[in-house]
Design a protein around this nucleic acid. Structure first.
Lengths: 299, 299
DNA sequence: CGGCGACTTGAATACTATCAACGTCGGTGG
DNA sequence: CCACCGACGTTGATAGTATTCAAGTCGCCG
Protein backbone atom coordinates (compact mmCIF):
# COMPACT_ATOMS: atom_id res chain seq x y z
CA UNK A 1 0.00 0.00 0.00
CA UNK A 2 0.97 3.57 -0.07
CA UNK A 3 3.62 4.47 2.40
CA UNK A 4 2.18 7.92 2.63
CA UNK A 5 -0.49 6.98 5.09
CA UNK A 6 -0.08 8.27 8.57
CA UNK A 7 2.44 6.32 10.56
CA UNK A 8 1.25 3.80 13.04
CA UNK A 9 2.21 4.79 16.49
CA UNK A 10 4.02 2.24 18.56
CA UNK A 11 2.47 3.46 21.76
CA UNK A 12 -0.22 1.07 22.86
CA UNK A 13 -2.27 3.80 24.47
CA UNK A 14 -1.96 6.39 21.76
CA UNK A 15 -5.39 5.69 20.44
CA UNK A 16 -7.11 6.45 23.66
CA UNK A 17 -4.91 9.46 24.08
CA UNK A 18 -5.96 10.89 20.78
CA UNK A 19 -9.54 10.51 21.73
CA UNK A 20 -9.02 12.14 25.04
CA UNK A 21 -7.39 15.16 23.55
CA UNK A 22 -10.28 16.36 21.52
CA UNK A 23 -12.51 17.26 24.43
CA UNK A 24 -11.69 20.79 25.34
CA UNK A 25 -11.08 20.30 28.98
CA UNK A 26 -9.00 17.18 29.01
CA UNK A 27 -5.48 18.36 28.50
CA UNK A 28 -3.79 18.09 31.78
CA UNK A 29 -5.85 15.14 32.76
CA UNK A 30 -4.76 13.31 29.61
CA UNK A 31 -1.07 13.63 30.27
CA UNK A 32 0.61 11.41 32.72
CA UNK A 33 2.85 13.40 34.93
CA UNK A 34 5.66 11.14 35.99
CA UNK A 35 7.82 13.11 38.31
CA UNK A 36 6.70 16.39 39.69
CA UNK A 37 8.98 18.82 38.00
CA UNK A 38 8.10 22.45 37.89
CA UNK A 39 9.90 25.43 36.43
CA UNK A 40 9.64 29.09 37.24
CA UNK A 41 9.74 32.01 34.88
CA UNK A 42 13.50 32.41 35.14
CA UNK A 43 14.07 28.79 34.09
CA UNK A 44 11.85 29.29 31.11
CA UNK A 45 13.54 32.47 29.99
CA UNK A 46 16.89 30.75 30.23
CA UNK A 47 15.63 27.86 28.15
CA UNK A 48 14.30 30.20 25.49
CA UNK A 49 17.47 32.27 25.72
CA UNK A 50 15.62 35.49 26.38
CA UNK A 51 16.35 37.99 29.15
CA UNK A 52 14.53 37.09 32.32
CA UNK A 53 12.57 39.80 34.06
CA UNK A 54 13.94 40.17 37.54
CA UNK A 55 11.01 39.64 39.74
CA UNK A 56 11.31 38.51 43.30
CA UNK A 57 8.17 36.46 43.15
CA UNK A 58 9.29 33.53 41.10
CA UNK A 59 7.16 31.27 43.19
CA UNK A 60 4.04 32.87 41.96
CA UNK A 61 4.39 31.51 38.47
CA UNK A 62 5.26 27.85 38.25
CA UNK A 63 4.96 25.77 35.11
CA UNK A 64 4.50 22.06 35.04
CA UNK A 65 6.65 19.54 33.21
CA UNK A 66 5.08 16.62 31.42
CA UNK A 67 6.92 13.62 30.02
CA UNK A 68 6.10 12.09 26.66
CA UNK A 69 7.30 8.79 25.28
CA UNK A 70 8.54 8.44 21.74
CA UNK A 71 5.60 8.38 19.38
CA UNK A 72 3.23 10.28 21.60
CA UNK A 73 1.64 13.47 20.42
CA UNK A 74 2.02 16.71 22.33
CA UNK A 75 -0.85 18.23 20.44
CA UNK A 76 -2.87 17.20 17.41
CA UNK A 77 -4.39 19.05 14.52
CA UNK A 78 -7.66 20.66 15.40
CA UNK A 79 -7.13 20.32 19.11
CA UNK A 80 -8.26 23.31 21.11
CA UNK A 81 -5.43 25.65 21.91
CA UNK A 82 -4.77 26.26 25.59
CA UNK A 83 -1.06 26.23 26.06
CA UNK A 84 2.29 26.74 24.51
CA UNK A 85 5.00 24.16 25.05
CA UNK A 86 8.71 24.42 25.62
CA UNK A 87 10.99 21.49 24.93
CA UNK A 88 13.14 20.83 27.97
CA UNK A 89 14.67 17.64 26.59
CA UNK A 90 14.08 15.25 23.74
CA UNK A 91 13.44 15.48 20.02
CA UNK A 92 10.22 16.02 18.16
CA UNK A 93 8.73 16.71 14.78
CA UNK A 94 5.87 18.99 13.85
CA UNK A 95 3.74 17.99 10.89
CA UNK A 96 0.91 19.22 8.77
CA UNK A 97 -1.53 16.67 7.36
CA UNK A 98 -2.80 17.39 3.88
CA UNK A 99 -6.19 16.53 2.50
CA UNK A 100 -5.06 13.05 1.50
CA UNK A 101 -3.61 12.20 4.85
CA UNK A 102 0.03 12.46 3.96
CA UNK A 103 2.41 14.15 6.29
CA UNK A 104 4.35 17.31 5.70
CA UNK A 105 7.12 17.74 8.25
CA UNK A 106 7.55 21.38 9.23
CA UNK A 107 10.29 21.32 11.84
CA UNK A 108 12.32 19.17 14.19
CA UNK A 109 12.13 20.96 17.54
CA UNK A 110 14.58 20.20 20.30
CA UNK A 111 15.64 21.62 23.64
CA UNK A 112 14.76 25.27 24.02
CA UNK A 113 12.27 25.40 21.18
CA UNK A 114 8.77 26.76 21.58
CA UNK A 115 5.83 24.76 20.28
CA UNK A 116 2.22 25.55 19.61
CA UNK A 117 2.41 29.13 18.37
CA UNK A 118 0.38 28.11 15.34
CA UNK A 119 -2.61 27.51 17.58
CA UNK A 120 -2.95 31.06 18.83
CA UNK A 121 -4.72 32.48 15.85
CA UNK A 122 -7.66 30.16 15.39
CA UNK A 123 -7.56 28.84 18.96
CA UNK A 124 -7.02 25.43 17.45
CA UNK A 125 -3.72 23.85 16.57
CA UNK A 126 -2.97 23.88 12.87
CA UNK A 127 -0.20 21.31 13.15
CA UNK A 128 0.67 18.30 15.17
CA UNK A 129 3.73 17.74 17.36
CA UNK A 130 5.04 14.21 17.80
CA UNK A 131 7.82 13.05 20.11
CA UNK A 132 10.62 11.30 18.21
CA UNK A 133 12.27 10.33 21.48
CA UNK A 134 11.23 10.47 25.09
CA UNK A 135 10.66 14.12 25.88
CA UNK A 136 10.28 16.44 28.80
CA UNK A 137 7.94 19.28 27.92
CA UNK A 138 7.02 22.36 29.93
CA UNK A 139 3.42 23.47 29.70
CA UNK A 140 2.83 27.21 29.39
CA UNK A 141 -0.83 28.02 29.80
CA UNK A 142 -1.42 30.77 27.30
CA UNK A 143 -3.61 32.89 29.53
CA UNK A 144 -1.06 32.85 32.31
CA UNK A 145 1.73 33.61 29.94
CA UNK A 146 0.12 36.53 28.18
CA UNK A 147 -0.89 37.98 31.53
CA UNK A 148 2.73 37.82 32.59
CA UNK A 149 3.59 39.58 29.36
CA UNK A 150 1.50 42.50 30.44
CA UNK A 151 3.18 42.59 33.83
CA UNK A 152 6.71 42.32 32.52
CA UNK A 153 7.27 44.41 29.43
CA UNK A 154 10.49 42.61 28.56
CA UNK A 155 8.62 39.34 28.47
CA UNK A 156 6.10 40.66 26.00
CA UNK A 157 8.87 41.96 23.78
CA UNK A 158 10.71 38.66 24.06
CA UNK A 159 7.61 36.80 23.02
CA UNK A 160 7.23 38.99 19.96
CA UNK A 161 10.88 38.40 19.26
CA UNK A 162 10.58 34.63 19.44
CA UNK A 163 7.59 34.64 17.14
CA UNK A 164 9.43 36.91 14.75
CA UNK A 165 12.38 34.54 14.74
CA UNK A 166 10.12 31.63 13.91
CA UNK A 167 8.69 33.63 11.05
CA UNK A 168 12.13 34.37 9.67
CA UNK A 169 13.11 30.75 10.04
CA UNK A 170 10.14 29.70 7.97
CA UNK A 171 10.86 32.33 5.37
CA UNK A 172 14.35 30.99 4.95
CA UNK A 173 12.87 27.53 4.71
CA UNK A 174 10.61 28.72 1.90
CA UNK A 175 13.56 30.18 0.07
CA UNK A 176 15.49 26.97 0.48
CA UNK A 177 12.64 24.77 -0.68
CA UNK A 178 12.04 26.66 -3.86
CA UNK A 179 15.59 27.58 -4.82
CA UNK A 180 17.95 24.76 -3.88
CA UNK A 181 18.83 21.46 -5.48
CA UNK A 182 18.37 18.20 -3.63
CA UNK A 183 22.07 18.00 -2.73
CA UNK A 184 22.09 21.53 -1.38
CA UNK A 185 18.98 20.89 0.67
CA UNK A 186 20.45 17.83 2.31
CA UNK A 187 23.77 19.57 2.85
CA UNK A 188 22.08 22.49 4.57
CA UNK A 189 19.94 20.20 6.61
CA UNK A 190 23.02 18.45 7.95
CA UNK A 191 24.80 21.73 8.56
CA UNK A 192 21.88 23.16 10.47
CA UNK A 193 21.46 20.04 12.51
CA UNK A 194 25.15 19.95 13.39
CA UNK A 195 25.00 23.57 14.43
CA UNK A 196 21.98 23.06 16.63
CA UNK A 197 23.51 20.02 18.28
CA UNK A 198 26.64 22.00 18.87
CA UNK A 199 24.73 24.81 20.51
CA UNK A 200 23.05 22.35 22.81
CA UNK A 201 26.40 21.04 23.98
CA UNK A 202 26.35 17.85 21.97
CA UNK A 203 28.93 17.03 19.37
CA UNK A 204 28.41 18.82 16.11
CA UNK A 205 30.68 16.31 14.42
CA UNK A 206 29.00 13.03 15.19
CA UNK A 207 25.35 12.70 15.98
CA UNK A 208 22.35 10.51 15.53
CA UNK A 209 19.49 11.48 13.32
CA UNK A 210 16.32 11.06 15.29
CA UNK A 211 14.13 10.95 12.21
CA UNK A 212 13.66 8.56 9.31
CA UNK A 213 14.74 9.26 5.75
CA UNK A 214 11.11 9.62 4.93
CA UNK A 215 10.72 12.40 7.49
CA UNK A 216 13.83 14.16 6.25
CA UNK A 217 12.50 13.95 2.74
CA UNK A 218 9.15 15.34 3.75
CA UNK A 219 10.89 18.19 5.54
CA UNK A 220 13.03 19.01 2.52
CA UNK A 221 10.48 18.38 -0.18
CA UNK A 222 12.24 15.27 -1.48
CA UNK A 223 11.56 11.57 -1.60
CA UNK A 224 13.23 9.24 0.85
CA UNK A 225 15.16 7.65 -2.00
CA UNK A 226 16.66 10.96 -3.00
CA UNK A 227 17.68 11.65 0.57
CA UNK A 228 19.26 8.23 0.84
CA UNK A 229 21.14 8.60 -2.44
CA UNK A 230 22.40 12.03 -1.52
CA UNK A 231 23.68 10.85 1.84
CA UNK A 232 25.43 7.98 0.11
CA UNK A 233 26.98 10.39 -2.36
CA UNK A 234 28.23 12.69 0.39
CA UNK A 235 29.65 9.63 2.07
CA UNK A 236 31.56 8.52 -1.02
CA UNK A 237 32.78 12.04 -1.51
CA UNK A 238 34.21 12.02 1.95
CA UNK A 239 32.03 14.84 3.22
CA UNK A 240 30.36 12.72 5.86
CA UNK A 241 30.17 9.20 7.19
CA UNK A 242 26.87 7.40 7.27
CA UNK A 243 26.05 4.44 9.43
CA UNK A 244 22.32 4.07 9.55
CA UNK A 245 21.20 7.06 11.55
CA UNK A 246 24.63 7.99 12.81
CA UNK A 247 26.14 10.83 10.81
CA UNK A 248 29.71 11.99 11.07
CA UNK A 249 30.55 15.39 9.66
CA UNK A 250 33.99 15.25 8.07
CA UNK A 251 34.05 18.27 5.80
CA UNK A 252 31.67 20.91 7.13
CA UNK A 253 32.98 23.50 4.71
CA UNK A 254 32.12 21.36 1.73
CA UNK A 255 28.58 20.98 2.99
CA UNK A 256 28.26 24.69 3.63
CA UNK A 257 29.49 25.78 0.22
CA UNK A 258 27.57 23.25 -1.84
CA UNK A 259 25.00 25.26 -3.71
CA UNK A 260 22.53 25.28 -6.46
CA UNK A 261 22.75 25.83 -10.15
CA UNK A 262 23.98 29.18 -11.30
CA UNK A 263 21.63 30.65 -13.89
CA UNK A 264 23.92 30.74 -16.86
CA UNK A 265 26.53 29.16 -19.01
CA UNK A 266 29.20 27.93 -16.69
CA UNK A 267 29.15 24.53 -18.28
CA UNK A 268 30.94 25.45 -21.46
CA UNK A 269 34.20 26.16 -19.76
CA UNK A 270 34.70 22.99 -17.86
CA UNK A 271 38.37 22.57 -17.30
CA UNK A 272 40.16 19.28 -17.13
CA UNK A 273 41.78 20.03 -13.79
CA UNK A 274 38.98 18.41 -11.96
CA UNK A 275 39.21 16.80 -8.60
CA UNK A 276 38.47 13.13 -8.71
CA UNK A 277 35.91 13.50 -6.01
CA UNK A 278 33.79 15.69 -8.19
CA UNK A 279 34.30 13.52 -11.22
CA UNK A 280 33.13 10.52 -9.33
CA UNK A 281 30.04 12.33 -8.22
CA UNK A 282 29.26 13.65 -11.64
CA UNK A 283 29.72 10.19 -13.05
CA UNK A 284 26.94 8.97 -10.85
CA UNK A 285 24.64 11.76 -11.95
CA UNK A 286 24.63 13.02 -8.43
CA UNK A 287 25.88 16.44 -9.26
CA UNK A 288 25.46 18.38 -12.48
CA UNK A 289 28.35 18.41 -14.85
CA UNK A 290 29.39 21.96 -14.25
CA UNK A 291 29.61 21.51 -10.50
CA UNK A 292 33.31 21.86 -10.79
CA UNK A 293 32.95 25.51 -11.46
CA UNK A 294 31.02 26.31 -8.38
CA UNK A 295 32.26 23.95 -5.73
CA UNK A 296 35.33 25.65 -4.34
CA UNK A 297 35.16 23.43 -1.31
CA UNK A 298 36.19 20.47 -3.38
CA UNK A 299 39.79 21.43 -3.90
CA UNK B 1 -15.26 23.87 13.40
CA UNK B 2 -12.91 26.71 13.21
CA UNK B 3 -14.10 29.59 11.16
CA UNK B 4 -11.31 30.81 9.02
CA UNK B 5 -12.50 34.37 8.91
CA UNK B 6 -11.50 36.61 11.71
CA UNK B 7 -14.39 38.01 13.66
CA UNK B 8 -15.53 41.36 12.43
CA UNK B 9 -16.43 43.86 15.05
CA UNK B 10 -20.07 44.83 14.87
CA UNK B 11 -19.46 48.52 15.00
CA UNK B 12 -22.47 50.46 13.82
CA UNK B 13 -20.32 52.76 11.76
CA UNK B 14 -18.11 50.16 10.22
CA UNK B 15 -19.79 50.25 6.84
CA UNK B 16 -19.25 53.89 6.15
CA UNK B 17 -15.82 53.65 7.64
CA UNK B 18 -14.85 50.95 5.22
CA UNK B 19 -16.03 53.00 2.32
CA UNK B 20 -14.13 56.04 3.26
CA UNK B 21 -10.89 54.15 3.15
CA UNK B 22 -10.84 53.82 -0.58
CA UNK B 23 -10.71 57.49 -1.48
CA UNK B 24 -7.49 59.25 -0.85
CA UNK B 25 -9.18 62.02 1.02
CA UNK B 26 -11.01 61.24 4.16
CA UNK B 27 -12.98 63.15 6.65
CA UNK B 28 -13.79 61.64 9.97
CA UNK B 29 -11.13 59.08 10.62
CA UNK B 30 -8.47 60.60 8.46
CA UNK B 31 -6.56 63.37 10.12
CA UNK B 32 -4.66 65.92 8.21
CA UNK B 33 -1.39 66.68 9.82
CA UNK B 34 1.75 68.00 8.22
CA UNK B 35 0.16 67.48 4.86
CA UNK B 36 -0.17 63.77 5.48
CA UNK B 37 -2.97 61.47 6.35
CA UNK B 38 -3.17 59.99 9.85
CA UNK B 39 -5.11 57.12 11.33
CA UNK B 40 -6.07 56.30 14.86
CA UNK B 41 -6.01 52.96 16.62
CA UNK B 42 -9.56 52.11 15.71
CA UNK B 43 -8.86 52.55 12.02
CA UNK B 44 -5.90 50.30 12.27
CA UNK B 45 -7.77 47.57 14.08
CA UNK B 46 -10.46 47.70 11.45
CA UNK B 47 -7.90 47.42 8.71
CA UNK B 48 -6.31 44.41 10.38
CA UNK B 49 -9.74 42.98 11.11
CA UNK B 50 -9.09 42.66 14.80
CA UNK B 51 -11.34 43.84 17.60
CA UNK B 52 -10.62 47.43 18.51
CA UNK B 53 -10.17 48.27 22.15
CA UNK B 54 -12.74 50.87 23.06
CA UNK B 55 -10.72 53.65 24.41
CA UNK B 56 -12.01 57.15 24.61
CA UNK B 57 -8.64 58.65 23.84
CA UNK B 58 -8.23 57.89 20.20
CA UNK B 59 -6.47 61.16 19.72
CA UNK B 60 -3.57 60.06 21.82
CA UNK B 61 -2.34 57.53 19.30
CA UNK B 62 -2.13 58.70 15.73
CA UNK B 63 -0.27 56.90 13.00
CA UNK B 64 1.07 58.52 9.90
CA UNK B 65 0.39 57.48 6.33
CA UNK B 66 3.15 57.51 3.76
CA UNK B 67 2.74 57.13 0.03
CA UNK B 68 5.04 55.04 -2.10
CA UNK B 69 5.21 54.96 -5.85
CA UNK B 70 5.44 51.68 -7.77
CA UNK B 71 8.94 50.34 -7.54
CA UNK B 72 9.84 52.06 -4.29
CA UNK B 73 10.93 50.07 -1.29
CA UNK B 74 9.11 50.30 2.02
CA UNK B 75 12.03 48.70 3.79
CA UNK B 76 15.17 46.93 2.62
CA UNK B 77 17.14 43.97 3.87
CA UNK B 78 19.38 44.82 6.75
CA UNK B 79 17.66 48.11 7.43
CA UNK B 80 17.24 48.88 11.11
CA UNK B 81 13.84 47.92 12.40
CA UNK B 82 11.77 50.74 13.88
CA UNK B 83 8.27 50.26 12.67
CA UNK B 84 5.69 47.90 11.40
CA UNK B 85 3.68 48.82 8.34
CA UNK B 86 0.07 48.33 7.40
CA UNK B 87 -1.05 48.41 3.80
CA UNK B 88 -3.91 50.84 3.42
CA UNK B 89 -4.04 50.62 -0.35
CA UNK B 90 -1.91 49.26 -3.15
CA UNK B 91 -0.06 46.06 -3.93
CA UNK B 92 3.40 44.97 -2.89
CA UNK B 93 5.78 42.07 -2.84
CA UNK B 94 8.16 40.98 -0.12
CA UNK B 95 11.38 39.33 -1.18
CA UNK B 96 14.41 37.62 0.22
CA UNK B 97 17.72 38.05 -1.59
CA UNK B 98 19.97 35.03 -1.65
CA UNK B 99 23.75 35.00 -1.64
CA UNK B 100 23.89 35.32 -5.42
CA UNK B 101 21.57 38.27 -5.58
CA UNK B 102 18.55 36.48 -6.94
CA UNK B 103 15.16 37.25 -5.55
CA UNK B 104 12.88 34.94 -3.68
CA UNK B 105 9.36 36.31 -3.46
CA UNK B 106 7.74 35.55 -0.12
CA UNK B 107 4.35 37.20 -0.31
CA UNK B 108 2.18 39.66 -2.16
CA UNK B 109 0.71 41.89 0.54
CA UNK B 110 -2.31 44.04 -0.12
CA UNK B 111 -4.80 46.11 1.81
CA UNK B 112 -5.03 45.13 5.45
CA UNK B 113 -1.80 43.17 5.54
CA UNK B 114 0.89 43.78 8.12
CA UNK B 115 4.50 44.18 7.01
CA UNK B 116 7.80 44.12 8.80
CA UNK B 117 7.20 41.49 11.46
CA UNK B 118 10.37 39.75 10.36
CA UNK B 119 12.40 42.68 11.62
CA UNK B 120 11.41 42.36 15.25
CA UNK B 121 13.75 39.58 16.18
CA UNK B 122 17.11 40.86 15.04
CA UNK B 123 16.07 44.52 15.01
CA UNK B 124 16.94 44.49 11.33
CA UNK B 125 14.68 43.59 8.49
CA UNK B 126 15.30 40.16 7.04
CA UNK B 127 13.34 40.83 3.90
CA UNK B 128 12.54 43.67 1.60
CA UNK B 129 9.12 45.10 0.70
CA UNK B 130 8.62 46.64 -2.73
CA UNK B 131 5.57 48.49 -4.00
CA UNK B 132 4.13 46.89 -7.15
CA UNK B 133 1.71 49.77 -7.54
CA UNK B 134 1.32 53.12 -5.88
CA UNK B 135 0.70 52.41 -2.23
CA UNK B 136 -0.58 54.09 0.88
CA UNK B 137 1.16 52.68 3.92
CA UNK B 138 0.53 53.35 7.60
CA UNK B 139 3.59 53.55 9.81
CA UNK B 140 3.33 51.84 13.17
CA UNK B 141 6.28 52.73 15.36
CA UNK B 142 7.04 49.52 17.17
CA UNK B 143 7.70 51.11 20.55
CA UNK B 144 4.40 52.95 20.48
CA UNK B 145 2.57 49.90 19.37
CA UNK B 146 3.94 47.49 21.94
CA UNK B 147 3.30 50.07 24.65
CA UNK B 148 -0.30 50.19 23.54
CA UNK B 149 -0.35 46.42 23.73
CA UNK B 150 0.44 46.65 27.40
CA UNK B 151 -2.31 49.18 27.94
CA UNK B 152 -4.94 47.28 26.02
CA UNK B 153 -4.82 43.57 26.66
CA UNK B 154 -6.99 42.81 23.64
CA UNK B 155 -4.50 44.53 21.44
CA UNK B 156 -1.65 42.42 22.71
CA UNK B 157 -3.65 39.27 22.13
CA UNK B 158 -4.62 40.47 18.67
CA UNK B 159 -1.01 41.11 17.83
CA UNK B 160 -0.08 37.58 18.88
CA UNK B 161 -2.98 36.35 16.84
CA UNK B 162 -1.87 38.17 13.70
CA UNK B 163 1.64 36.85 14.04
CA UNK B 164 0.32 33.37 14.59
CA UNK B 165 -1.77 33.66 11.46
CA UNK B 166 1.28 34.70 9.46
CA UNK B 167 3.12 31.70 10.79
CA UNK B 168 0.34 29.34 9.76
CA UNK B 169 0.18 30.96 6.36
CA UNK B 170 3.86 30.32 5.85
CA UNK B 171 3.53 26.75 7.05
CA UNK B 172 0.85 26.12 4.48
CA UNK B 173 3.11 27.73 1.91
CA UNK B 174 5.88 25.32 2.86
CA UNK B 175 3.54 22.39 2.48
CA UNK B 176 2.42 23.65 -0.89
CA UNK B 177 5.93 24.24 -2.16
CA UNK B 178 7.18 20.82 -1.31
CA UNK B 179 4.14 18.74 -2.09
CA UNK B 180 2.34 20.17 -5.09
CA UNK B 181 2.90 19.94 -8.83
CA UNK B 182 3.40 23.04 -10.92
CA UNK B 183 -0.19 23.02 -12.13
CA UNK B 184 -1.55 22.69 -8.62
CA UNK B 185 0.65 25.52 -7.39
CA UNK B 186 -0.54 27.89 -10.07
CA UNK B 187 -4.15 26.82 -9.55
CA UNK B 188 -3.93 27.50 -5.85
CA UNK B 189 -2.20 30.77 -6.42
CA UNK B 190 -5.06 31.94 -8.61
CA UNK B 191 -7.64 30.65 -6.18
CA UNK B 192 -6.05 32.44 -3.26
CA UNK B 193 -5.68 35.64 -5.19
CA UNK B 194 -9.30 35.53 -6.31
CA UNK B 195 -10.39 34.97 -2.75
CA UNK B 196 -8.34 37.85 -1.41
CA UNK B 197 -9.60 40.20 -4.08
CA UNK B 198 -13.12 39.14 -3.28
CA UNK B 199 -12.64 39.85 0.41
CA UNK B 200 -11.39 43.31 -0.43
CA UNK B 201 -14.52 44.09 -2.38
CA UNK B 202 -13.00 43.65 -5.81
CA UNK B 203 -14.18 41.09 -8.28
CA UNK B 204 -12.95 37.61 -7.58
CA UNK B 205 -13.81 36.63 -11.14
CA UNK B 206 -11.82 39.11 -13.17
CA UNK B 207 -8.73 40.81 -11.89
CA UNK B 208 -5.34 42.05 -12.90
CA UNK B 209 -2.19 40.39 -11.75
CA UNK B 210 0.06 43.06 -10.36
CA UNK B 211 3.18 40.95 -10.67
CA UNK B 212 5.22 39.54 -13.53
CA UNK B 213 5.37 35.88 -14.45
CA UNK B 214 8.84 35.86 -13.07
CA UNK B 215 7.63 37.03 -9.67
CA UNK B 216 4.85 34.47 -9.65
CA UNK B 217 7.37 31.80 -10.50
CA UNK B 218 9.69 32.91 -7.76
CA UNK B 219 6.83 32.87 -5.29
CA UNK B 220 5.78 29.36 -6.32
CA UNK B 221 9.21 27.86 -6.83
CA UNK B 222 8.79 27.63 -10.61
CA UNK B 223 10.33 29.26 -13.65
CA UNK B 224 8.48 31.97 -15.49
CA UNK B 225 8.14 29.69 -18.50
CA UNK B 226 6.37 27.05 -16.48
CA UNK B 227 3.99 29.65 -15.07
CA UNK B 228 3.26 30.93 -18.54
CA UNK B 229 2.70 27.46 -19.95
CA UNK B 230 0.42 26.52 -17.10
CA UNK B 231 -1.68 29.63 -17.49
CA UNK B 232 -1.96 28.92 -21.20
CA UNK B 233 -3.01 25.37 -20.44
CA UNK B 234 -5.68 26.49 -17.98
CA UNK B 235 -6.86 28.90 -20.62
CA UNK B 236 -7.19 26.22 -23.27
CA UNK B 237 -8.95 24.00 -20.78
CA UNK B 238 -11.49 26.69 -20.18
CA UNK B 239 -10.63 27.12 -16.53
CA UNK B 240 -9.58 30.73 -16.94
CA UNK B 241 -9.10 33.43 -19.53
CA UNK B 242 -5.72 35.03 -19.89
CA UNK B 243 -5.07 38.38 -21.51
CA UNK B 244 -1.66 39.54 -20.47
CA UNK B 245 -2.10 40.30 -16.80
CA UNK B 246 -5.85 40.19 -16.81
CA UNK B 247 -7.15 36.89 -15.50
CA UNK B 248 -10.73 35.77 -15.66
CA UNK B 249 -11.75 32.90 -13.44
CA UNK B 250 -14.23 30.72 -15.30
CA UNK B 251 -14.19 27.44 -13.41
CA UNK B 252 -13.13 28.08 -9.82
CA UNK B 253 -14.03 24.56 -8.80
CA UNK B 254 -11.68 23.05 -11.33
CA UNK B 255 -8.86 25.18 -9.98
CA UNK B 256 -9.67 24.27 -6.42
CA UNK B 257 -9.77 20.54 -6.98
CA UNK B 258 -6.72 20.27 -9.18
CA UNK B 259 -4.16 18.47 -7.11
CA UNK B 260 -0.92 16.64 -7.06
CA UNK B 261 0.09 13.12 -7.83
CA UNK B 262 -1.47 10.45 -5.72
CA UNK B 263 1.22 8.25 -4.22
CA UNK B 264 0.24 4.97 -5.79
CA UNK B 265 -0.86 3.09 -8.83
CA UNK B 266 -3.75 5.03 -10.18
CA UNK B 267 -2.27 5.15 -13.62
CA UNK B 268 -2.86 1.50 -14.50
CA UNK B 269 -6.57 1.82 -14.43
CA UNK B 270 -7.07 4.70 -16.74
CA UNK B 271 -10.52 4.45 -18.16
CA UNK B 272 -11.50 5.52 -21.62
CA UNK B 273 -14.39 7.68 -20.47
CA UNK B 274 -12.19 10.69 -20.42
CA UNK B 275 -13.31 14.22 -20.95
CA UNK B 276 -11.80 15.78 -24.00
CA UNK B 277 -10.52 18.66 -21.98
CA UNK B 278 -8.31 16.40 -19.96
CA UNK B 279 -7.16 14.44 -22.96
CA UNK B 280 -6.09 17.61 -24.65
CA UNK B 281 -4.12 18.67 -21.65
CA UNK B 282 -2.45 15.33 -21.21
CA UNK B 283 -1.58 15.34 -24.85
CA UNK B 284 0.39 18.48 -24.33
CA UNK B 285 2.22 16.99 -21.38
CA UNK B 286 0.70 19.61 -19.21
CA UNK B 287 -0.97 17.24 -16.86
CA UNK B 288 0.16 13.77 -15.88
CA UNK B 289 -1.59 10.87 -17.53
CA UNK B 290 -3.57 9.80 -14.54
CA UNK B 291 -5.12 13.21 -14.02
CA UNK B 292 -8.37 11.78 -15.17
CA UNK B 293 -8.64 9.80 -12.00
CA UNK B 294 -8.29 12.69 -9.68
CA UNK B 295 -9.88 15.60 -11.41
CA UNK B 296 -13.56 15.26 -10.63
CA UNK B 297 -14.08 18.87 -11.54
CA UNK B 298 -13.53 18.09 -15.16
CA UNK B 299 -16.83 16.36 -15.80
C1' DC C 1 13.07 -18.13 12.40
C1' DG C 2 9.94 -14.99 10.08
C1' DG C 3 8.22 -10.69 9.36
C1' DC C 4 8.30 -5.90 9.28
C1' DG C 5 10.04 -1.35 8.89
C1' DA C 6 13.83 1.27 7.57
C1' DC C 7 17.28 1.80 4.30
C1' DT C 8 19.93 1.19 -0.15
C1' DT C 9 20.52 0.85 -4.94
C1' DG C 10 19.25 0.40 -9.87
C1' DA C 11 16.53 1.38 -14.10
C1' DA C 12 13.04 3.77 -16.39
C1' DT C 13 9.93 7.52 -16.53
C1' DA C 14 8.06 12.01 -15.86
C1' DC C 15 8.32 16.62 -14.71
C1' DT C 16 10.33 20.94 -14.86
C1' DA C 17 14.28 23.79 -16.13
C1' DT C 18 17.03 25.53 -19.63
C1' DC C 19 17.97 27.51 -23.94
C1' DA C 20 16.33 29.82 -27.85
C1' DA C 21 13.36 32.23 -30.99
C1' DC C 22 9.74 35.09 -31.56
C1' DG C 23 5.70 38.30 -30.44
C1' DT C 24 3.69 42.20 -27.93
C1' DC C 25 3.43 46.38 -25.60
C1' DG C 26 4.97 51.12 -24.21
C1' DG C 27 8.13 54.52 -24.14
C1' DT C 28 11.80 57.34 -26.31
C1' DG C 29 14.27 59.76 -29.59
C1' DG C 30 15.73 60.45 -34.40
C1' DC D 1 5.55 59.36 -37.35
C1' DC D 2 8.15 55.49 -37.24
C1' DA D 3 12.17 52.88 -35.78
C1' DC D 4 14.23 51.17 -32.09
C1' DC D 5 14.72 49.40 -27.64
C1' DG D 6 13.90 46.95 -23.40
C1' DA D 7 10.91 44.48 -20.41
C1' DC D 8 7.55 41.13 -20.48
C1' DG D 9 5.31 37.11 -22.30
C1' DT D 10 4.61 32.88 -25.25
C1' DT D 11 5.96 28.68 -27.31
C1' DG D 12 9.00 24.91 -28.89
C1' DA D 13 12.93 21.66 -28.48
C1' DT D 14 16.08 19.55 -25.47
C1' DA D 15 18.35 18.26 -21.32
C1' DG D 16 18.72 17.13 -16.63
C1' DT D 17 17.09 16.24 -12.07
C1' DA D 18 14.09 13.99 -9.04
C1' DT D 19 10.42 10.63 -8.75
C1' DT D 20 8.57 6.22 -9.33
C1' DC D 21 8.79 1.44 -9.41
C1' DA D 22 11.27 -2.56 -8.17
C1' DA D 23 14.42 -5.58 -5.92
C1' DG D 24 17.20 -6.59 -2.30
C1' DT D 25 19.81 -5.78 2.43
C1' DC D 26 20.03 -4.86 7.21
C1' DG D 27 18.63 -4.79 11.92
C1' DC D 28 15.18 -5.50 15.34
C1' DC D 29 11.50 -7.81 17.83
C1' DG D 30 7.84 -11.11 18.67
Amino acid sequence: MSSCSTPVLPGSFSAERTQKMFPVLSNEAGWRCQGNLWSNLTDICNLLKIPAPNCSHDEEALFQHVRFKAGQRIHTIGQHFDSLFIVNSGFLKTVLIDEYGSEQVLSFPMKGDLLGIDGIHAEHHASEAVALSDCDIIILPYKTFSALGRTYAELELAMFSVMSRELVREQIMIGMLSALSAEAKVARFLTNLAERFGQLGYSGKIFNLRMTRHEIGSYLGLTLETVSRTLSAFNELGFITVDQREIGIIDPQALKTLRRLPPAKSRKKMTEQVSERVSALVGKNLLPQWSKDIAPALN
